[in-house]
Each structure stands twice: as C-alpha cells, then as structure tokens.
C-alpha cells in the first residue's frame, strides 16, 4: 500500500512537470499551427538560467532567505525563457510561415540543437551535469515505504496553481479571448482588431514561462541538470500534447499525467527493467495513437478547413 502511494506521488510529480511542458506545445500549435520542437530545450534553458541566478545570489547575497532565493531563481528562469520564446517566435517562426510548414519544423529542431550546444560550450563546465540546489528545506515525512518530501508537495501545489492561472488567463481575460480567437480563425481575429503579432508574442511568453517553471521544477526534483535534459522532456511534452489532442490545453494537461502514469506503470510491472520505462511509455503512446488518432480530447473535424 505504501509503495503504491509512493508510486502515485512520484507519478503525480512527473505528470505535473510533463503537463507544464505540454501546455506550451499545445498553445503554440493553437495560435500558429506549428510544432516548436525547440520547446524542450527552452525548458532546459530555464533550468540553467535558474541555476545561474542561484550561483550569482550565492556569491553576492548568501544570507538571503530561502523563500526569496527560490523566488529569484524562478523569476530569472521565467524572464530568460519568456524572452527566448518571444524572440524565437518573432525572428524565426512568424517569418517562416510564408514557406512550407516543414521548414518551420526543421528550423525549430535546429534551434533546439543550437540551444543545447550553446549551454554545453558556453555555460561554465556546461558539458558535465550540474548540481541543482534543492532550495526548499528538505523536510520529509516517512511512513513505512512512503516518503513524502516537503519540497515535492510545494512543487506540486505550485504547478497546480500555475495551471489554474493559465486556465484563468485563457478563459477569463481579454488577452485569453484574443488568443482563442486567433487559434480558431486567425484572419477573422485580425478583422476584429486583434494585433496578431502581439498575440503571438504573448502566447509564446505565456507558454515559455510555464516551461521555465517546469525547468526549475525538474532541477529541484532531480537535483541535477545537464544540457541534454530538454531532449527527452521535449519528446515527452510533445507526446503528451498529442495524446491529449493538439490545440487543447486540458488535453495537454491530461496527456502529461497519462504519460507519467504510463512510465510509473512501466516501473511497477517491470521492476527488473525500470531503465526501460520510457520505452514502455512511448510504446504505449504509439498504441494510444493507433486507437485514437485525433487524441483523447478530439477537436471537431470541422475546425480547420
């Protein structure tokens, strides 16, 4: 029983992280009809921006309270990644829209490589894994096989708050209404007076900020980051978004948790081969796609004609 609870807890943590990454994929696809393959590496940049901030604070303000420290690390990650996202959209994705969509796919993939290699080459000792600080106090609660870590609970709850916030922005604000309008009919939205470029930039800032949080969360959860983490996180986030039905924010969140659930199942049923949990999960994704080609929460087919 304890063990099952422990698996559930870990699964939920991972699921939250994947959901946060998947939300970005689905938002970008919604407004621009593109898959931004560099999104996973954007998450990685978030981790490293947070780490850099932590080092900087550590050398100049070592006495800073934990709360402020965490907040600054988060802010640094969000600021850097939001800027990077907006730059990617404005300098690369929007101009490339005049060409075939495959060009955008290729360009974002290449951008991912550039981001990865830049960290490897230019971040101090970037080719080796870096220790990411736990930041929060390492209180934990042990009962039998169940080990509840305080920082995990905080991370999970903050992740849930971020998702709730995204939901509010999309559904309850004028900006969110414009984002949905652009996603449903870009030209009609412009005819209503929506500034298309502004909405694209805002969407990329939003999706990337959420990813930055996932990056910091990833660092704090594993206490280690390396320049390659974005590759797997990107593949997982993309799969989650597709499982849920691309373009649907709730689908992406659901997809993230399903993927984490699949990984966890993989570990539980094959404890002797837990290294293959990703193989199991991705295999299950292929089966899911064969069963529901349009994703679990399907968009009405009439949407894009």
């Amino acid at each position: 029983m304890d063990l099952i609870l422990q698996f559930c807890m870990n699964g939920l943590m991972l699921g939250m992280m994947y959901a946060l990454v998947a939300v970005g994929f689905t938002l970008f696809f919604g407004v621009l009809d593109v898959i931004v393959f560099s999104h996973g590496d954007t998450v990685m940049i978030g981790s490293f921006a947070g780490l850099a901030m932590y080092w900087w604070l550590g050398s100049y303000y070592p006495e800073l309270a934990v709360f402020w420290m965490t907040l600054w690390v988060l802010l640094a990650a969000v600021a850097v990644v939001a800027l990077l996202g907006m730059l990617t959209a404005d300098a690369m994705i929007v101009p490339l829209r005049k060409g075939p969509p495959l060009n955008t796919l290729l360009a974002t993939m290449m951008l991912g490589t550039v981001l990865r290699e830049s960290i490897r080459l230019f971040f101090p000792d970037g080719s080796n894994p870096q220790t990411f600080p736990g930041l929060l106090p390492d209180w934990s609660w042990q009962s039998g096989n169940l080990n509840l870590r305080f920082d995990n609970i905080v991370l999970f709850c903050s992740g849930a708050c971020i998702i709730a916030l995204v939901h509010l922005v999309i559904n309850r604000t004028r900006l969110g209404m414009a984002i949905r309008a652009v996603a449903q009919d870009e030209e009609a939205a412009q005819l209503m007076g929506v500034n298309f470029r502004f909405i694209v930039l805002a969407t990329f800032a939003l999706g990337s900020s959420v990813a930055a949080f996932a990056g910091v969360m990833n660092g704090m959860y594993y206490n280690e980051i390396n320049f390659g983490v974005g590759l797997l996180l990107g593949a997982i986030g993309f799969s989650s978004a597709v499982i849920g039905g691309l373009g649907n924010v709730y689908g992406a969140i659901l997809g993230g948790f399903i993927f984490a659930f699949l990984q966890t199942i993989g570990v539980v049923v094959m404890p002797f081969a837990s290294a293959y949990k990703d193989v199991f999960a991705f295999g299950a994704v292929i089966l899911l796609m064969a069963w529901r080609p349009t994703g679990l929460i399907a968009e009405p087919a009439s949407k894009r004609v």
Binding site: M177, R180, A181, Q184, D185, E187, A188, A189, L191, P300, S302, K303
Partner: peptide
C-alpha cells in the same frame, strides 16, 4: 465572407 464566426466561443 462565409461569416467566419469563432465556433468554439
């Protein structure tokens, strides 16, 4: 032309 309403709003 073609109304172009936002179907999911």
């Amino acid at each position: 032309e073609g109304r172009r309403i936002f179907p999911k709003m």
